[in-house]
């Protein structure tokens, strides 16, 4: 369960306030959607939950399953179960996608005091996940997100989420910039991850991501 209480946030120099006393509770298995115009603070909220440094929390608290996220480093929050699907996923040249996935997964397992996954186990999971999302094997050998199309990057975010099995998945405009086929694959991927234990915070301009059958685009 994610609880946000009376959250006030400014950008780091403290002059411009972006969030003014936000309250939000998302119970296990629930999906919350945040919609609103550009510049209203939607992405800010996602970054503050994940722990990006450029923001100053003036007041309030964010609890995940009772744990205070604001006291944790970004990597500790990730291990605690926070996953943010970025609106613009970053490129990491020279680091093969597969290498990155394994490093991330094992770092989180280590953070939770669990054993590392064996390589065959890991490979099986990645392969299964990639297949569902229509990600070809050779893409996993390329540098993470390097030269990927917008749609491929978004699919890669969903693959990461599937592997890391977070307790809260934050989707920051994951449905923007996708064509109708990519949108279908991504929304199926997200819907497959819905469970009684996992909650979602979806930032979007549309109502289509969580319906398995996306609306047909109007022809102009």
């Amino acid at each position: 369960m994610l609880e946000i209480r009376n959250l006030h946030v400014a950008i780091e120099d403290g002059t411009k306030k972006i969030l003014n006393g936000l309250n939000l509770t998302i119970r296990d298995g629930e999906v919350a959607a945040i919609m609103g115009p550009n510049g209203s603070g939607k992405s800010t909220l996602s970054y503050v939950i994940a722990g990006k440094e450029d923001y100053e929390v003036l007041e309030g608290e964010i609890l995940l399953d009772g744990k205070n996220l604001l006291e944790m480093e970004p990597d500790e929050r990730a291990a605690a179960g926070v996953f943010l699907a970025f609106q613009y996923p970053l490129e990491i040249p020279g680091v093969a996608t597969m290498t990155f996935l394994k490093a991330a997964l094992n770092a989180q397992r280590k953070g939770r005091g669990e054993d590392e996954l064996t390589t065959p186990d890991f490979m099986r999971r990645v392969k299964a996940g990639a297949e569902k999302l229509g990600i070809p094997q050779d893409m996993l050998k390329r540098g993470l997100n390097v030269g990927f199309s917008g749609g491929e990057k978004k699919r890669m975010e969903i693959l990461q989420m599937a592997l890391l099995e977070p307790s809260i998945g934050i989707l920051d405009e994951t449905d923007s910039g996708l064509d109708i086929d990519a949108l279908k694959i991504v929304s199926e991927g997200v819907n497959a991850l819905r469970s009684a234990k996992r909650s979602f915070l979806v930032i979007t301009h549309y109502q289509r991501l969580l319906s398995s059958k996306p609306m047909a685009m109007p022809t102009i």
Binding site: E91, P93, G94, V95, A104
Partner: peptide, 29 residues
């Protein structure tokens, strides 16, 4: 190595040192 790249890696669970080592190793591979 941008702050954004580091944050991205850390959001996935890597510490700042692990993220830097990973990016640098990729660079010199």
């Amino acid at each position: 190595i941008s702050e954004d790249q580091l944050f991205y890696c850390r959001q996935r669970g890597l510490s700042a040192e692990e993220a830097t080592a990973l990016i640098v190793n990729g660079f010199v591979k």
